[in-house]
Simulated assay, not measured.
Amino acid sequence: MARPTIIDVAKAAGVSRATAARVLAGATNVDPVMTSAVEREARNLGYETNFAARMLRGGRAGAIGLVLAFNEIGSLNGTFFASALKGAAKGLAAGDVQPVLLPADDEDLGRIPKFLRSGAVDGVIVILQHEITHLVDSLADSPVPVAWIGRPHGDVGPDPIVIDADNHTGGILAARALVEAGRRRIGIITGPPDMEQANERTRGWTEELTRSGIAPGPMVHGDFTVDSGMAAMARLLQRDPDLDGVFASSDLMASGALRVLQAAGRRVPLDVSLVGFDDVLPATTSDPPLTTVRQPLEDMGRTAAEILIATIAGREVERVQILPTTLVRRESL
């Protein structure tokens, strides 16, 4: 059966095609009787299944932007970004909303905010990564709702939409696992200080070690990449060659740390226990596979999409949601 057209709707409603088009485009100056007839016949004919038409009638674009870091596009597997993107895309598809990818980089100060002012999207989901933390300030006065996957560092205005994992508890779980494994000289490779997720993981790690009567070991920063994990692990070994436990606050950094430990003759887990964070592909493909703290990345993306869609529709929703983290034990502990 052919999909109903606007001509079919106009004929069934007894109005002109132009009138039907105005109603479906959201015009408010059409006779209420005609408006009601057009909306009724659009539903009866199944024209409402055309989401673009439904959005136009409501004065919306029917699309939501997905902001992600440029450098992640070439590695769609095994990263924080990939799982969160998958979940967001599924959530948008379930809501019959078209996703629009909006890649950004650390030099992009004006393009994304300008695009959001164009009316091309009804809202935007930002998969927050170190490379695009500068967008937090530039999106503070966004004309459309912004949903953040990952808690922004700084002021994002009143009543923000934030979907994050329980990073603080994740840090506690990592430290506790290392202590329970008998480790006492425990260092940390934390993330960038402008990433609130990294800071929360570090706070949880520090608090749990202190509760256990163990002085936190050396701390170095990475940027959630394999290379930064390698460089950070080398610095940790310089500061304390006898480390017997390491918490790397991303699996990518943990996989880099593992390479350096092995090159230095430190066996994992016989000599050093290693715990990562995220539970993405590198955690299962490294040798040995990594014990890690799992954050529900796909669920975070899907939840962000659902809350943003509800917000755009004017429904009351819980705008800040913190999803649980869990420890996944593998052979590196």
Rank of each mutant, 00 (worst) to 15 (best):
D194T: 09
G78Q: 10
A13E: 13
P288V: 09
L139T: 05
R211G: 13
H168N: 05
V320P: 08
R151P: 02
V23T: 09
F70E: 15
R43K: 15
D155H: 13
A304P: 12
F247N: 08
A53N: 11
L333A: 04
P158N: 08
P160F: 13
R211Y: 07
A264T: 04
A63I: 10
Q129I: 01
A37I: 06
G187K: 00
F81G: 11
A84Q: 08
G245M: 02
Q197T: 09
R57A: 15
P288R: 02
A181K: 01
R203C: 03
A82K: 13
A310S: 15
Q98P: 00
G46F: 14
K90Y: 03
A304N: 11
F115Q: 08
P160G: 12
V33R: 14
L290R: 01
L274S: 05
G91D: 07
R201T: 05
G119D: 03
T292L: 02
T19K: 06
A82T: 13
A37H: 08
A61K: 13
D96L: 13
P282K: 02
L101S: 09
L45I: 05
G276N: 04
G65S: 12
V136D: 01
L128E: 03
K11E: 14
G150P: 10
A313Y: 03
G217M: 02
M195S: 06
L274F: 04
L56P: 03
A69L: 12
V126P: 00
P152E: 10
A120W: 00
A63C: 13
T311V: 15
G276K: 08
G301H: 08
A120G: 07
G222D: 12
N199K: 10
R60M: 13
I125W: 01
R185W: 03
R201S: 06
S138W: 04
F70L: 14
T79Y: 13
G58Q: 15
E180G: 00
L178P: 02
R201Y: 09
R259N: 11
K11L: 09
H134N: 14
N199I: 12
D105S: 06
T5A: 14
G119R: 06
T190H: 01
S250V: 11
R211Q: 14
T133Y: 00
E41Q: 15
S83Y: 11
S212P: 07
G191W: 01
I112N: 07
V275Q: 08
I309G: 05
S118K: 03
A53M: 06
Q321R: 15
V179P: 01
